[in-house]
Design a protein around this nucleic acid. Structure first.
Lengths: 123, 123
DNA sequence: AGATGAACAGCATGTTCATTT
DNA sequence: AAATGAACATGCTGTTCATCT
């Protein structure tokens, strides 16, 4: 049986891509693990009413590793009262990272134009 | 059985609300029927890569009539090679229309801030 | 409890079908 | 065919559950 896929009508950028962009940028500036990224992103966006879910962050990380092949993970042992091991991500292919961010930028620019157009034409 | 509804994490504005805003504004400036609005909206947004679906426009119209109670419809007979009757909408409650648009504006402003923030922090 | 991952479920919306003129 | 509407299907993502330390 063929799986029939859906067309996008091209409305606004999807949450997944938006999160991937932030995740890449954060990891470009240091190593991070999943829940750490979640906390950071929530803190960043909470003032704007956006509080992403932990599963979305993990899904983004998994796809950046397996599909986009931009990240790799390393298991790190941690001393302290928390978990003994944590999965830290780092950039695997910075060219791919750069290319991916470029694509996302185009989509964000486009999305912003849609919103600006609406603000200009309806108010 | 209780139907358990989902929380929104507050990412970007939904297509439905975005279309409702344009539909209200168009109808404030004259009478329109469904497919006519669809054509107009597609023409407007196509340059930005967005081509809404006819069913979304109808769903928006139905909700603006039945849930928001902002519009009413009138059946109009049309002379010509097309359909004999067409369902034209007009504003029923302009105060509610105004209030609804105000809410949508807040959500668009918020969405735009999210996108601008991303543009500023990742590039 | 903190961290990760996956299964499950609901919702927004895309696709297709039916009906009427 | 133009117009409307509804049923059906799918993908995104929120919720819940499981496992490990």
């Amino acid at each position: 049986m063929e799986k029939k896929s859906r067309e996008s009508t091209g409305f606004l950028i999807k949450q997944r891509a938006f999160l991937k962009l932030y995740i890449i940028t954060n990891i470009e500036n240091g190593r991070w693990y999943g829940l750490q990224l979640l906390d950071e992103l929530r803190k960043e966006f909470k003032p704007l009413g956006f509080e992403p879910q932990h599963s979305e962050v993990y899904r983004a990380l998994h796809e950046l590793e397996d599909e986009e092949e931009i990240l790799t993970k390393v298991r790190i042992k941690v001393e302290g009262a928390k978990r003994k091991e944590v999965i830290v991500y780092k950039i695997k292919d910075s060219e791919k990272a750069k290319a991916y961010k470029k694509l996302v930028k185009i989509d964000i620019d486009r999305s912003e134009q849609l919103l600006r157009k609406a603000l200009g034409e309806n108010f």
